[in-house]
Amino acid sequence: MRKSLIVLLCLTVFLSCKNESKSNPEASVTESTSDLKTFKGDFVYFADAAVLQTSGEIYGVIINDKMHELDEQVKVYKSEATDMVPVEIRGIVIPKDEDEDEEGWPLRIDIKEIVNVSKPEAENNNVIKLGKE
């Protein structure tokens, strides 16, 4: 009876231990395709700020070469600098570091692939313009 109790206790301790794998610092730098997610939404880049607005979330977009490539593709469909253009991209979501004292959205996307850029629908362009026309 005592042996079975010790075996049961050892088994319980063994099964309840966490299986923590040691991470290689260089492994976190490499990107896995499983980390990439597809996003569909409206993109705008204006005054050094890039934003992707999906149906459920607004993301800041990391300004890099891929973001500039996307901006060049959406310029074809813009009539105003502030127009948002429907896009489909693949990227990695990066939460904003709470310790950083920077402005911006709590979630950012690092664009890795541009899937599609579409012409905006005219009825979705609800813009209020101030000034003389």
Results as ranks from 00 to 15, higher is better:
V76M: 15
D65S: 09
P95W: 06
L52S: 00
V76F: 12
E100M: 12
I94N: 09
A81I: 10
A49L: 13
P95V: 12
T38D: 06
P106V: 01
R90V: 02
A49M: 13
E57C: 00
D65N: 10
V44H: 07
D99L: 08
I58S: 11
P95R: 07
M84C: 07
R90G: 04
G91P: 03
T54I: 09
D48V: 03
I63E: 04
M84W: 09
I58F: 03
T82L: 09
V74S: 12
T82V: 07
Y45K: 08
D48Y: 08
V87N: 02
F46E: 09
D99W: 10
M84I: 08
G41P: 13
V93D: 03
V61N: 01
P86C: 15
K96Y: 03
V44Y: 10
E103Q: 09
D97G: 05
D83Y: 01
L70Q: 04
D97N: 15
H68F: 11
T33C: 13
I58V: 15
V44I: 12
S79F: 15
Y59G: 08
G56D: 11
I92W: 07
I92E: 05
D83E: 11
V74T: 13
I58R: 14
L52F: 00
Q53P: 06
P95Q: 02
E88N: 09
K96L: 14
A50N: 05
G60P: 00
T38A: 05
L36M: 08
Q53K: 10
I63G: 00
G91K: 05
R90W: 07
V44A: 08
Y45R: 07
I58Y: 07
V85P: 05
E80D: 12
D101W: 01
S55K: 10
K40A: 05
N64I: 12
G60H: 01
Y59R: 11
E57V: 01
R90T: 09
A50H: 04
